[in-house]
Every structure is written in C-alpha cells, then in structure tokens.
Amino acid sequence: MTTLQENYHTDNPVALITGSGAPRVGRAIAQHLASLNCHIALHANTSVDEANAAAKDIESDYGVKTIVTTGSLEDENVPDRLVAETVQAFGRIDILVNSAAIWSPTSFEEITASEIQRYFNINTLASFLCARAAGVQMAKQTCGGSIVNIGDWATVRPYLEHAAYFPSKGSIEVMTRSLAVELAQYNESIRVNCIQPGPVMLADDVSDSKAKTIASSTLVGRVGKAENVAHAVQFLCENDFVNGICLPVDGGRSIFAPDGMQVGMNTG
C-alpha cells in the first residue's frame, strides 16, 4: 500500500483538521497525522488557547510544523479563510478532515427552526464549504488530495432527543458521494470519503453504569478510542482506490441489536 508521502509526492503532506482545538477526536486525528510526518493546521473556535498549546506539543513531539486557524464555522466566510491560511503557511493542502460538529440533546417538543438551522450551518454547510475550498486548491496539485468527512453511525438508528441533530449528520453521507463525483471531474486524484464513528471518547459526566451499557451495545464489548477514528483517516488517505464511501468505525454498533432484541434462528 502506498504511504501518504508517496500519494502526495512530498515528505511532509499538509493536513487541515477542523474542530481540533479541544482534546477530542479531531485533536487525536491531528496528532496521528503528525506522527506520520504531516504538517498540521489545527482549527479552533472557542478552544483557541487549547489549540495553541496543542500546536506547541505537536511540534515538540513530532517535529512537524503546526499552525492554528480560528473562526466560527457559522460564518460562511470562514471555510475559505481556513484553507487560504493553510495554503499560505505551507504552500499546499493534501488532507482535509471535517471534524468540527455540534450536538446537544433537545426534547422533541422544544426543537426550534433556528436550532435545526444552526446544526445544518455548522455540521453540514461548513463541511461542504471547507471541502469546496480545499478541493479547488487540490485540483491545482498534480497529486490531488483527500477529504474525509466525519458523520455518525447513528444516522441509521437514531436515538432520542437528537431529532434536530441527525438530519445534519445524515446529509454528510450524500454530500460525501456528491463531492467525490464533483471533485473527480477537476482532478481524478481528489478523493472524498466519510467516517461514521460509533461510541468513542465518552463525555466525562457519563456514569460507570452508563459506560458499561454503551460498551455492551457494541459487538466488541467495549467503547472505542479516538485513535480508532484517526487510524481510519490514515487508511482513507493512503488507499488511493477508495472513493465516495462511508465507513462505520463503531465496533459493530450499527448492525448489533443489544438487550436481547436479536431474533433467534429456529433449528427445529
């Protein structure tokens, strides 16, 4: 299999990861790509101080150049600027990971139109605009580039109190396929794929009993790690014959019916 360096014809491919300021999945993706000798553009909105500290750690730990880009993805002008700042700093962009997202439980009766609109603006529209901006630059590069969108496994089995959130994440799957088709017309070496994470990096306020319940809802019987998602990003960026797919990284959660809901097979 080809390496990132072979795919992008450089010793130090450049990766922009949105939503990577806070110590969540986006940060883990950035650190993993840095360990593979990628120069890194972190992005933060409210976690700017954390992003600046992370940038120093990444440069120290992995010896790659790291910058911090900032801005609210509710502003439709920010995606173009993030990509422009990345290209200005490094002269190129080889990898874009659309990791930034918002989610919060809301009871069905209390959902407002403005809340749904905000989910689409940040989770869907911003990912599209970042991908378009990156794709325009990648089209100029002989080696093209890779765009990885972050979706959600639960779009196929939504859970309660997130009816405002799931439409925005469900759109990521269709958007990924459409972007793959569109951008290949500009440069056939541009690939667009999607990862659908399952339960990884549970919130600090999740109780032990709840964590056990979540772990038992997967086929592997445990909660995943942010590194599982980061490794999937590496695979999608390295494998140059994978394009337009949505890859669940969920421990089998999307196909498993826990709590005794499986239907037994009659062997009589």
Rank of each mutant, 00 (worst) to 15 (best):
S107P: 13
L202Y: 03
I147H: 11
P248D: 06
V242L: 04
Q262L: 09
A44Q: 09
F241E: 11
R81W: 12
D49Q: 14
I150W: 02
L82E: 00
K65Y: 10
Q5N: 09
Q196S: 10
S35C: 07
L73N: 10
Y8I: 00
I40M: 11
D152Y: 13
A44R: 01
V48N: 00
G198Y: 04
S146A: 15
V233E: 01
G151Q: 02
E115K: 06
V223Y: 11
V229G: 06
E85D: 15
S216W: 03
I172H: 08
T112L: 00
Q234I: 01
F166E: 05
Q137H: 15
V97E: 01
Y62W: 11
Y62C: 05
N243L: 09
Y62R: 04
F128W: 11
I67N: 11
D57R: 15
A113I: 09
S178T: 14
V97Y: 04
W103Q: 14
V233K: 00
G251P: 05
F108I: 10
G26W: 00
T267H: 12
E188F: 02
L96F: 12
E109I: 13
D240L: 00
V83L: 02
L96T: 04
R118T: 13
F108N: 11
A15V: 02
K65I: 07
Q88G: 03
N239E: 12
T106E: 13
P199R: 00
I122R: 00
A89Q: 09
V68Q: 15
T86P: 11
H39L: 05
V64A: 04
S47W: 05
E50S: 14
H9R: 06
I214A: 06
